[in-house]
Design a binder for these strands. Structure first.
Length: 548
RNA sequence: GCGGGCGUAGCUCAGUGGUAGAGCGUCACGUUGCCAACGUGAAUGUCGAGGGUUCGACCCCCUUCGCCCGCUCCA
């Protein structure tokens, strides 16, 4: 409960100070969409720029002591529809779902029996009355269950609504084949069926027991049309991930730049998903921004690179000022893996709304050769890689020409660290939010100085006696290097408090002494300490702390 | 999608079937010499939206949208 209210305070502060607003608010808002306000966009851009810098402009140092080979890309949001056929998104992002005829609950058609077995309260309870191993049916017990517990747990189950009918069918079934024990699935279908019609036996809703409707595709990709007519052949999809754009341009990048395997292609951009339940502020929204990098490497080295990126990405998050105890690596269980992945690890963060549990922040997936192979198949284009270095090496080792030919041409494997930029904004907001009853604002944002939207507030102590002139001059100098704000109005305490609330790490104040000795005070947000710094050292002071 | 809670000023929230309120914030002027000081003044809402009942609805009823929580879902 305390956690929930922390989240409420964060949401409220975000609105009040201009970090995040509900999208289309004057029309009542639109579910799953958010706008980033004046401070929010600064924060988001700082994270984005930091990622880009650390991935593309100044990539990590590899195991060989040299910087990794990395290039950037900005691909289109809309790609050829076949992209999503090849990637598997069209199939898996259109899960067959079945809707309950009574409570409206959606169940994935292929998960129904798992759901019944693992998370249906009424089904679990009913199991006490029927043992699938023996297949024995005790009509009286079932009748009693239907009239007591069943009424509460599964009010819409046929067995509960009309026990006589379903039990008599079951009896017929047993009499008809007395030697064969009734199987669980068959038993379940019988008790879920009130009226036998053309569709035959029914499947029950795991929640209320009513029969489920037919299986229909549930579209998780947003659709649009490219062209003047909205005909099926003009249908296009808004990308559900940025990654595919990279695979589509892989060949061009290999052909036109001088990258050699292993290398990476990084991209930042918007993605769209028809999330079933957008919730938890900007954690799960229908339009969001991703920072994805595809690392192309030799299949034999994929595992090593997977481990490398795991470590590297954790290090990066910590460099943004995220505390280690709030971060966690979690390996996906085999049955949880996406259709494309051989192994995946999530970097999770302890959000206020998941605490004490953690929620996803970034996924690092070993995609194997899945994507390139798929696009190779669907496009008919060769997407393999000819490794000249390996060829030379094999030649030196005295390999046969056949072996050299076979081994030096291969489809690279891919390691993908994919993180949510908008989720990163949320993490920094949560991480920075600090309640402090001892300061006037009552709360402040403890952003890492590098990430803070505003780096410094520049104030004249009072708005007269030559102070504003000096302060404004300082502002004009500093603004070319750092995002600064000049504010001559109102009491100094109020200005400090405002800066605390938006997480500005430094406040520089011009006072009476400045006019005598050319020094200012710099107030540090977290410690509230002030120190006098000579005017000509302010730039260095800031540079040391922000561009370190 | 289901169940529960909520929706009134930028924020937090009172409120009554009879022409809208507080605190904080914001703005202006004055004052002010280091942590939302003080004084004076000001702006702001079709009470989420649409419909209905009523002489009259922020209040009652219906519908809808959005937010939060639980279940479910989550490449």
């Amino acid at each position: 409960m305390a956690e929930a209210s922390v989240m409420e305070k964060i949401v409220s502060l975000c609105k009040r100070r201009g970090f995040v607003y509900p999208a289309s608010e004057i029309y009542g808002g639109i579910r799953g969409f958010w706008d980033y306000g004046p401070l929010g966009v600064l924060l988001k851009n700082n994270i984005r720029d930091s990622w880009w810098r650390d991935m593309v402009e100044c990539p990590p140092i590899g195991p060989d002591g040299h910087p990794l080979d990395m290039v950037g890309l900005d691909s289109s949001i809309i790609q050829h529809p076949k992209t999503w056929e090849a990637s598997g998104h069209l199939a898996t992002f259109a899960d067959p779902m079945r809707k309950c005829s009574k409570c409206g609950h959606f169940v994935r058609a292929d998960h129904l029996w798992d759901m019944l077995a693992t998370s249906s309260k009424w089904f679990d309870d009913l199991l006490q009355e029927f043992t699938p191993i023996s297949g024995h049916i005790d009509t009286e017990r079932l009748m009693r269950w239907a009239k007591t517990k069943g009424r509460k747990l599964a009010p819409n189950l046929a067995l509960v609504r009309n026990p006589e009918v379903t039990l008599s069918w079951l009896a017929t079934r047993v009499n008809g084949q007395p030697d064969v024990p009734v199987e669980m699935m068959e038993f379940t279908r019988h008790i879920a069926t009130e009226q036998l019609n053309a569709t035959g036996l029914q499947d029950p809703c795991p929640l209320c027991g009513a029969e489920l409707g037919p299986s229909e595709p549930f579209k998780l990709m947003m659709e649009s049309y490219a062209g003047l007519t909205q005909t099926p052949d003009n249908k296009v999809y808004l990308r559900p991930e940025t990654a595919q754009g990279i695979f589509l341009q892989y060949k061009n990048i290999v052909d036109t730049t001088r990258v050699k395997v292993p290398f990476g292609v990084a991209q930042i951009g918007k993605s769209f998903r028809n999330e079933v339940t957008p919730r938890n502020f900007i954690f799960r929204s229908r339009e969001f921004e991703q920072m994805e990098m595809e690392w192309f490497c030799h299949p034999d080295e994929a595992r090593t690179w997977y481990e490398f990126w795991k470590t590297e990405r954790m290090r990066w998050w910590k460099s943004l000022g995220v505390k280690e105890e709030n971060l966690k690596l979690r390996d996906h269980a085999p049955d949880e893996l996406s259709h494309y992945s051989k192994m995946t690890v999530d970097i999770e963060y302890k959000y206020p709304f998941t605490a004490p549990d953690f929620g996803e922040l970034e996924g690092i997936a070993h995609r194997g050769e899945f994507d390139l192979t798929q696009h190779q198949k669907h496009s008919g284009q060769k997407l393999d890689y000819f490794d000249q270095e390996l060829q030379l090496k094999l030649k030196e080792q005295g390999a046969s020409p056949e072996e050299i030919k076979a081994k030096s041409r291969y489809v690279p494997n891919v390691i993908e660290p994919a993180s949510g930029l908008t989720r990163a904004v949320l993490v920094l907001l949560c991480e920075g939010y600090t309640a402090d009853p001892n300061r006037p604002s009552g709360e402040y944002m403890r952003f890492d100085p590098k990430m803070a939207p505003i780096k410094a507030g520049i104030f004249p102590l009072v708005n007269k006696d030559g102070m504003p002139e000096v302060a404004e001059k300082l502002y004009m100098d500093l603004r070319t290097k750092f995002m600064c704000e000049y504010d001559p109005k109102q009491s100094i305490g109020k200005r400090y408090a405002r800066m605390d609330e938006i997480g500005t790490p430094y406040c520089i104040t011009v006072d009476g002494e400045t006019l005598k000795d050319q020094s200012v005070t710099i107030r540090e947000r977290d410690t509230l300490q002030q120190q006098r710094v000579s005017l000509d050292k302010v730039d260095t002071y800031m540079t040391d702390r922000i561009l370190k």
